[in-house]
């Protein structure tokens, strides 16, 4: 019985020491990072809000009472739905322009579309392909476009 109790105690002591050791190591890694964290916080103050580049379109979407719009880009990727760059751009736009719904999956079903150009040289090609005209052009290659004909 006494041996059994001793074994239990050794087991508990071992576990306590292991947890304490791991806690110390983890805390040490946090302490090393504190300097970096402070720098990152300072840098964050200069970073604009998510989707800031799209803020200029808010007024036009409201004026034209656009509740749904397509979202297209000139970026070519094998699986656009899983392309991080495209999705990041689309979701930033959606966050900024909510409650207007941006449809990335069936963009051409909508009369109005938001075109994001990663390369400004593609503007005329994209407008031609979409059979659309430019309504409002922002910096950073962001354009509100309207498809010609009835939708």
């Amino acid at each position: 019985m006494k041996i059994k109790n001793n074994l239990e105690n050794i087991k508990t002591l071992f576990l306590t020491l292991l947890i304490a050791l791991l806690t110390c190591l983890n805390l040490f890694s946090h302490i090393k990072n504190v300097g970096n964290i402070t720098n990152v916080i300072a840098a964050q103050a200069k970073i604009p809000p998510v989707g800031y580049a799209y803020y200029g379109l808010k007024k036009y979407l409201k004026e034209l009472n656009i509740r749904q719009a397509g979202f297209i880009t000139d970026r070519i990727s094998a699986n656009a739905g899983e392309d991080v760059v495209t999705m990041s751009e689309y979701q930033s736009a959606q966050y900024a322009l909510s409650p207007t719904l941006l449809d990335y999956f069936n963009a051409s079903n909508h009369q109005f579309m938001i075109l994001k150009l990663f390369n400004p040289k593609n503007e005329s090609r994209m407008l031609k392909e979409s059979q659309a005209e430019s309504i409002k052009k922002l910096d950073n290659g962001i354009i509100l476009i309207k498809q010609k004909g009835n939708k």
Partner: peptide
């Protein structure tokens, strides 16, 4: 420390702004 880590990412990670907070917004 956790507050500092939170302030490092004022909009949170990707799903935070593109999903949880988007829904609130």
């Amino acid at each position: 420390l956790s507050i500092m880590l939170a302030l490092c990412r004022p909009f949170g990670d990707w799903d935070a702004w593109s999903f949880w907070n988007l829904r609130a917004n």
